[in-house]
Amino acid sequence: MSQMTDMRKTEEEWLRTERLPHVWCPGCGIGIVLNAFLRAVIRRNIPKEKMVVVSGIGCTGRTAGYVNVDSFHTTHGRAIPFAVGVKFARPDLNVVVFSGDGDLFAIGGNHFVNAARRNHDLLIIAVNNFTYGMTGGQHGPTTPTGAYTTTTPYGNPDRPFNIPHLAISLGAPYVARWTTYHVNQLQNSIYKALNMKGFRVIEIISQCPTVYGRRNSMRSPMSMMEYFQKNSVINNKASYEEMELTYKGKIVVGEFRNVGGIPSYEERYEEIIRRAQE
C-alpha cells in the first residue's frame, strides 16, 4: 500500500463522513482547500486531540461541521476572537481559523487587523471567492473593481482589499496566496505554516461559479478554473502593487513572507507572567 493511498484512508477518518455530501455547490473550491488542509495536517502527524478548527459564518464557515476534530462554528466575523480564547486557555493546541473573505475581512476586519498586530499564534486560512456566496452574491470587500454582482449590476466601484499586503504591513510572519488550481503548492504551504509560530495567513483565491462566475461570464466550474490557470503568476518577491487583485487581471500568487523568530503574543504573555511572579 502506498503512502498516498494510506493518506486517503486517513483523510476519511478526519471527515465527518456521515454528513457528506456537503452543502457546497458543484465545483466550489472550498472542498479543494479542505482536502489540501487535511492532507497537510495528516503529513504533519498532528493528533486529532491537538487540533481545533474555528470558523465563522458563510459558505466557508460550514467547514467546522465537516472536520472530525473539535471545532467551533462561531458568530459572524468573530472566528478570530474565539480562536484567541481557545489558544489562551489551551496553549498546547494547534488553532486553525478556517473562514471566508466576508467573515474575516468585512465584519471581522477589525479583529483580523488587531490579532495580526499582536501576533497571536493562529493559522488563518482565508478562502477568498470575491463575493458573499451564501446570501446571494452581493459585493463584498474583496470584490474586484468593475466586477458585476447582484448589488453592483453596473460594475463595482470599490477597490478590493489587498490581503497579503495588509497582513505583511501588520507584521505577520508567514503570508502566502494560492488559488485552488495550485493544489500541491497550497498543500505544501499549509504543511510549512503548521510548523511555525505566530499569525500565519494563507489566502486562497477560490471559485464561486454559482453566484460570482455566472455574472462575470464564467458560468461553469471549469471556466473559473481555466481563468486561474491562465492568469496566475508565481512571484514570491512581488511588490505590493503587483499583489493587488484586478477584475479579470493577473493573480500574483506565491509565498510572500516567511520569517521566523518573531515572538508570538502567547510567548510574550508568558514572559510577563514569569516577571510578575519573580
Binding site: 457528506l20 466550489c28 472542498g31 482536502n35 492532507r39
Partner: peptide, 13 residues
C-alpha cells in the same frame, strides 16, 4: 483525488 472538491474519488494503487 487532489482536485475533487467532494471527496468522491479514491485512487487505489
Amino acid at each position: 483525488e487532489l482536485y475533487c472538491p467532494d471527496f468522491a474519488i479514491v485512487v487505489e494503487e
